[in-house]
Nucleic acid binder design. Structure first.
Lengths: 220, 220
DNA sequence: CCTTGTGAATCGTTTCACAGCC
DNA sequence: GGCTGTGAAACGATTCACAAGG
């Protein structure tokens, strides 16, 4: 299914979010597997880890090419490289964090980002009391510097960790300044201009889904 | 479709997670709408807020009963109450947080939980340096007290915010002690016994989905 | 013989469209 | 006339099952 000349161009139309989420999971497992010195892996082993089926694993990969050998499985090394490339992790991404409250500060210092190629290049807050605080080598900067810094450092991704009321105005500012993707932790639904990607993580919603499941038996 | 005698029993078989997630979103909007003094709302207004369609809103609600009046819309007050009941938010839930690192501490102090009926009744860490720290009125307790406290306070939900390596062992302990739902923030896939619900939030995966979208154009 | 890659079948979710009711 | 509630149609994702290839 893949174009035989250039393994790095993926002729993709539309990929389901669930597929991308699983690829991210497979990648994590492949890295562990590689660290343990294993050379090959089958779709079944990958599936066991991801809580899915071998057919699902093969289908997920088939959207992007054929990476395995029949009868043998996949080269751990090659598949790791292929998935990193599919996900766009071959080059690092620059991230700014807008809001240096508890969650913003926690994310700024979170090791899991840098270890996967996401570099936090700036943390911003409007509170003078927080500006200047050191978070793991980064100094919190005033929100007034946002536009200047975005033009200078060209980060692609903004993580929004301000209170709900302030979120939309800040998203408007960072997207106007050139940010192309937004990860929203504020409990408010945001809108972004065309061409900008938006994802939201809502802690309260996650707990509410648990509450629903607890009260309605084994549903969901 | 609803049983006419008791509005609080919902004869539900299987509800999609996406439906529950949207209900949580509708509830947030309804509360805002109520605060603004509006008395009724249509499925179209609710849809505009949730980024969905009026048919979707009506279908979501139809799984649980009929709450509106044809030609008129929904009573904001009644629909708010109905969704709170559907989600199981009529009574408060007790939550423990396992791991008092950056993210655990941030969640322990997060207002968005308590304001929606989730009460954090304990925060635990194994590091002696963190035990005794005060987080917004809660004192970090030693992990060794987990079982005793779960038996005593009967929390239903555990939020796991320890490093990946430690996560499975702690989930085993809290589920053995009686926890029925787990929200996992550790970047490790966990397994839970039958009858226990598990959800995972992975910050790195969220960024990776953004990276995929950025590198693959308007896909996902 | 084992495991991949993939059309075809199945299953689940969303959208359509309209009858029913305020 | 306007909006809900809901079967039916359309769409999308997952699972099946098997041909192809090491």
């Amino acid at each position: 299914m893949n174009d035989f000349t250039s393994p790095q161009t993926f002729p993709v139309k539309h990929i389901a979010e669930s597929t991308v989420r699983r690829l991210s999971l497979y990648l994590r497992f492949l890295e562990e597997f590689e660290a343990k010195g294993h050379e090959t892996i089958s779709s079944g082993e990958l599936a066991a880890f991801g809580g899915t089926t071998s057919a699902q694993v093969r289908k997920d990969l088939s959207f992007f090419g054929s990476f395995g050998k029949r009868g043998l499985g996949y080269s751990v090394k090659d598949l790791t490289a292929a998935i990193r490339e599919i996900l766009g992790l071959e080059h690092p991404w620059s991230v700014i964090i807008v809001g240096a409250g508890k969650i913003g500060a926690a994310l700024a210092q979170y090791r899991g980002f840098s270890s996967r190629g996401f570099t936090v290049v700036g943390v911003y807050d409007k509170e003078p009391a927080r500006v200047g605080l050191k978070l793991d080598g980064l100094v919190v900067r005033p929100e007034s510097e946002l536009e200047r810094d975005i033009h200078r450092l060209k980060p692609q991704i903004a993580v929004i960790t301000v209170p709900a009321e302030a979120a939309q105005a800040l998203v408007d500012r960072v997207t106007a300044a050139g940010i192309k993707a937004v990860l929203n932790f504020a409990p408010a639904p945001l809108t972004v201009p065309d061409g900008v990607t938006l994802r939201a993580v809502n802690m309260a919603t996650e707990l509410e889904i648990l509450a629903f499941t607890l009260t309605n038996g084994t549903t969901v």
